[in-house]
């Protein structure tokens, strides 16, 4: 992701979250964690943004708005999913009124609009610690490497 080596401007979009993740995002912007040292800035329009910051399990009501915002972000775009709800659906993964996570959104985008999956960094947590969000951003910028990978153990 070398294109993101410079400052990334983010547009924050709540897709039906409980606001805990949104409060943690505000924490990240405070002087204590100060994510602006990476050049990260919240902007008011997705047209000015490089990255889309999604929180919440993507309710069916918010789906058209999410798609509109995602299409409005100019290429090359990046999606940062904050919280377990966005990453894998969280406790709402099979609820009737939500899509249940980002994978389902990408499936809809591919099938209905023919849009390929944008590069995505997912930050699980309920809500994630501010440090965890910074770690996710650092992963997107290429400062750190992904710490865990899938492991499979077979025992007797």
């Amino acid at each position: 992701m070398s294109v993101y080596r410079r400052s990334i401007w983010v547009f924050h979009l709540n897709t039906g979250s409980c606001n805990a993740c949104d409060i943690e995002i505000l924490d990240v912007l405070t002087p204590y964690h100060d994510v602006e040292r990476f050049g990260i800035k919240l902007v008011a329009s997705p047209r000015h943004a490089d990255a889309l910051l999604l929180t919440g399990p993507i309710t069916k009501e918010s789906l058209p708005k999410v798609i509109d915002a995602l299409l409005a972000v100019p290429e090359p775009k990046l999606v940062i999913a904050i919280g377990s709800c966005t990453c894998g659906g969280g406790i709402w993964y099979d609820t009737y009124s939500t899509l249940g996570g980002l994978n389902e959104l990408y499936r809809v985008l591919k099938e209905e609009y023919g849009i390929p999956e944008p590069p995505t960094v997912k930050v699980p947590g309920c809500p994630p610690r501010p440090e965890a969000i910074i770690y996710g951003v650092a992963l997107a910028l290429g400062i750190v490497k992904q710490k865990y990978s899938t492991t499979k153990v077979r025992v007797e």
Binding site: L139, K152, V155
Partner: peptide, 17 residues
């Protein structure tokens, strides 16, 4: 441990006989 952000899905699997 909180540094769990990922690009490729992370699953821990244990298979028992």
């Amino acid at each position: 441990e909180f540094e769990l952000a990922y690009k490729d899905e992370v699953r821990f699997i244990i298979e028992l006989k």
